[in-house]
């Protein structure tokens, strides 16, 4: 009896899976695309898309590395330039390329196909600075001065990829020791550390009830503020504070996973993410710039000043040293040891 029902169940499972092939796509938790585009892809390729969200990008990558013997997905989207070297070293990615579109010059992501890019940088609360009649800081070093005491909130790089990107920018610009000297000075100048972007933006940023008028966020955030405003506004309440050594270029991409199934559908998905529909649609969904050159940029992005310069460590350095940097950062800033 039991055997019979097990057999029946197995048969039922088989027949279900034969109906439509399933493409398993692992993404980070911020992944979001217009629903009609996804339906269109499923229809065109005769597959069912199973989106699996694996948490923050770093957490997602580690989940993939741990399960490499039995891959839990066929494609991964959301590995960025802080993680790509680690993913390649772990040997979880299959060679991936796409013939769709030409990639923007800066959107470099060896080992994967770039889909979008953006900048982690400082945002400030315009109203706060206007009211305080304080000039904007002109350099990162200004943030260590008494006039700017207790104004900055950053995310902890140990629990937030936003915070990690910002720390990496300071290290690329000043060298490791120089950067940590700066962190020590801002720490002593009343730096606030939050767990993640949401906590920093919604409980510490002065625009949302906190006390800090400067927050580590994205260069696209001022545009999103306009897009998601309650009533139509023509000017963002926040703006970018683009300081030397305080801008990190983040490039996100898609890659096939080793041992994944449905290689054809997987390749089709890679090309799909590079297609004009997705490249246009992702802008106001994920608030990143499209990686394919020539894509029309959504007009709302005019509210966000695009950084001209950025400072990133080399991919190899980010792979080999990030863990040590994060641990040093926490000792210095959170534990306040020297």
């Amino acid at each position: 009896m039991l055997k019979k029902s097990v057999l029946l169940l197995a048969l039922a499972g088989l027949s279900l899976s034969a109906l439509a092939a399933e493409l398993r796509v692992m993404t980070h938790s911020s992944f979001s695309l217009p629903k009609d585009r996804i339906a269109e892809f499923e229809k065109q390729n005769g597959v069912k898309l199973s989106i699996i969200k694996g948490g923050d990008a770093g957490e997602m990558l580690n989940k993939l590395i741990l399960t490499r013997a039995n891959p839990i997905a066929d494609v991964v989207y959301g590995i960025d330039n802080t993680l790509i070297a680690k993913a390649s070293a772990a040997g979880i990615l299959a060679p991936t390329s796409s013939k769709v579109g030409r990639t923007e010059k800066d959107a470099v992501l060896p080992g994967a196909v770039a889909v979008d890019y953006g900048y982690v940088t400082l945002n400030y609360d315009k109203a706060w600075f206007a009211k305080a009649k304080l000039p904007l800081p002109a350099t990162l070093d200004d943030l260590a001065k008494p006039a700017y005491k207790d104004l900055l909130v950053v995310e902890n790089p140990a629990t937030s990829s936003t915070g990690l990107a910002f720390m990496l920018a300071t290290i690329a610009d000043r060298g490791e020791d120089g950067a940590f000297k700066w962190w020590e000075k801002v720490r002593d100048n009343g730096l606030k550390v939050s767990k993640g972007w949401s906590e920093a933006y919604y409980t510490d940023f002065s625009r949302n009830g906190g006390s800090r008028p400067i927050v580590v966020s994205y260069a696209s955030s001022p545009a999103a503020e306009v897009f998601y405003s309650k009533e139509k506004i023509s000017e963002s309440p926040t703006a970018n504070l683009l300081l030397k050594g305080g801008v990190f270029l983040q490039v996100e991409g898609v890659a096939l996973l080793k041992g994944g199934k449905e290689p054809q559908a997987a390749q089709a998905f890679v090309d799909f993410l590079r297609s004009d529909g997705v490249q246009t649609g992702l802008q106001t969904k994920m608030w990143m710039y499209p990686a394919v050159a020539g894509t029309v940029i959504d007009p709302v992005f005019a509210h966000a000043q695009k950084p001209a310069k950025f400072s990133n460590p080399s991919l190899a350095a980010m792979n080999s040293k990030t863990a040590a940097w994060v641990s040093r950062w926490n000792r210095l800033v959170v534990k306040q040891a020297n």
Binding site: Y201, Y202, S217, A224, E225, F227, Y228, S229, K230
Partner: peptide, 12 residues
């Protein structure tokens, strides 16, 4: 949490 993961008054 999804809405608190994006900027903007409407999300809040």
């Amino acid at each position: 949490y999804q809405h608190l993961g994006r900027p903007g008054a409407a999300n809040l």
